Amino acid sequence: MTLHPAAPPTRAIRSTGWVQLALLALVLVPAIAGSLRLVELSGGPLLLPANPRMTASPAPVAAHIVSAISYAVLGAFQFSAGFRRRRPRWHRMAGRVLVVLGLAVALSALWMTLFYARQPGTGDLALVFRLAFASGMAASIVFGIAAIRQGDVVRHQAWMTRAYALALGAGTQAITLGIGHAVFGTSVLTTDLMLGAGWAINLGVAELIIRGRTAGHRTRNAPTAVAT
């Protein structure tokens, strides 16, 4: 009786190209809105509804927009298994940059939540959601760093996937807010719940991805008994 490693599954690995496109499409709306806001903050024309909270203190929001867009675009390519195998050094270098960008996204979000005046049309629930999910993103990045330092690649990927999912909350919120306001009408409670739903949906999808990836990793590393 000889033990041979099970053949690695190939179906999931070959289909990663569409993942980057889907992630970039999700970030498109907030990236456009953020870019227009940057134009305004840099002295350009007013292209979005006025936001006195941001114009009074533009540095945090500018840092948040730049880091969020960069994190979302660069991070999308970290999900390509083939790209990671072909360019491992690039993956490691990009990962270090993404850690800095991701922490900048989370910490600037916390700063704006704590020190900016509350966004009109939102309530206490939205404040709690923002504090919780921004803190969760920062914690996920820290846990991901700790995992890779211990050589635990699977746990590192899981935590970084959660952090990225939370960073893309604004993209999903553009959808949930549109549906929520169309179905339930515009109210503070609806807005707060739809904001929370955006983050919750992203985290749910991330957990499904993590479970599938973990199951695939176990399958690839499980020995198969073959009679010889």
Rank of each mutant, 00 (worst) to 15 (best):
A62L: 12
G102P: 03
S80D: 10
T122Y: 10
F129G: 06
M54A: 14
A109C: 09
H64W: 07
S80E: 01
A106L: 07
L101A: 11
N51E: 13
A146F: 00
A139C: 01
A94T: 10
V97K: 08
R86G: 02
A132V: 11
A109Y: 03
A62Y: 06
G136Q: 10
G75E: 14
M54Q: 14
A72N: 12
R53E: 08
A56I: 08
F79W: 03
G82Q: 09
A68N: 14
S108P: 05
M112D: 04
G82N: 12
A134F: 12
A62I: 15
I141P: 03
L103Q: 09
T55I: 10
G95K: 02
L107S: 06
L74N: 11
P60Q: 11
A81H: 09
A106S: 15
R118C: 00
V66C: 14
V128Y: 13
A147S: 12
G102M: 08
I145H: 03
R86I: 00
F77V: 09
P60M: 07
G75Y: 12
A68Q: 13
R92L: 09
P52I: 08
F77Q: 07
A59F: 06
L114K: 04
V66K: 11
F77E: 11
Q119E: 14
A81T: 10
Y71H: 14
W90C: 00
V142W: 14
A56L: 14
V99F: 12
T122N: 00
